[in-house]
């Protein structure tokens, strides 16, 4: 997992509430696609018109926001299914952090597992940042600083956000749950060594023909 320390860049405003995982990535795109290739299908129902061409009015198609590493979103972002592909699709299009008033639990957990930072700020604050971005779309820059737990708006205003300390540490170090658990690798190895002696039958699973 890529560590997350801080990111600065354009922030694309997509303030609708309840943006669901079906909108972020359609279920049929999850079959047989790699994580990296899912970015091409992110928000496809909004990004493309019926004839397959890009809809220039959609915010993520505007030149200033095409490579935006930050997404400004409405409440309950990522609701719907448990698909982790929703996170991969956002990452595939270059998004590193989302700033929203709230998230679905599963999306939030999936995001943290993959190093996508889900920042929670008050709805009024998110709207204010979005207004500043819209006022100068080609110049406005937003910073999400995980080390200092702060979002810096285009006008320089600093907004503190909170995150579980263990999660913050894991993100800074680039550790997902697997990474966190592997920190206890020595304890696991010691436990397993003792267990092999105590429960040999749990470990002897050689195929019958190899006995």
């Amino acid at each position: 997992m890529q560590p997350f320390t801080a990111v600065t860049g354009p922030a694309a405003p997509l303030l609708r509430p309840n943006i669901d995982t079906d909108v972020i990535i359609r279920v049929e795109r999850l079959v047989g696609t790699t994580r990296a290739s899912m970015g091409a299908h992110a928000f496809e129902v909004w990004r493309f018109r019926a004839d397959g061409s890009e809809d220039p009015a959609f915010v993520l198609n505007r030149p200033e926001f095409r490579a935006a590493p930050i997404l400004l979103a409405g409440p309950n972002f990522g609701c719907g299914s448990s698909r982790e592909g929703a996170v991969w699709a956002l990452q595939g299009m270059g998004v590193r952090a989302v700033i929203a008033p709230s998230y679905s639990d599963i999306f939030r957990n999936n995001a943290l597992q993959n190093g996508l930072l889900p920042v929670v700020l008050d709805e009024a604050v998110v709207r204010e940042i979005a207004a500043q971005v819209e006022a100068a779309p080609d110049r406005a820059r937003v910073t999400v600083d995980l080390e200092r737990e702060v979002v810096i708006a285009p006008d320089g205003t600093r907004h503190r956000f909170a995150i579980d300390p263990a999660r913050r540490e894991a993100l800074l170090a680039g550790l997902d749950d697997v990474g966190l658990t592997l920190r206890q690798a020595d304890a696991i190895a010691a436990w397993q060594q003792a267990d092999r002696a105590a429960r040999p039958w749990a470990w002897q699973v050689a195929a019958p023909e190899r006995r």
């Binding site: 982790e84 999936n110 597992q113 749950d177 697997v178 658990t181 592997l182 696991i188 397993q192």
Partner: peptide, 16 residues
């Protein structure tokens, strides 16, 4: 288990 948990177990032989 879900797919992340399954991957976690494959990688660590444990679950949280």
């Amino acid at each position: 288990v879900g797919s992340s948990e399954l991957a976690h177990a494959l990688a660590t032989q444990t679950l949280r």
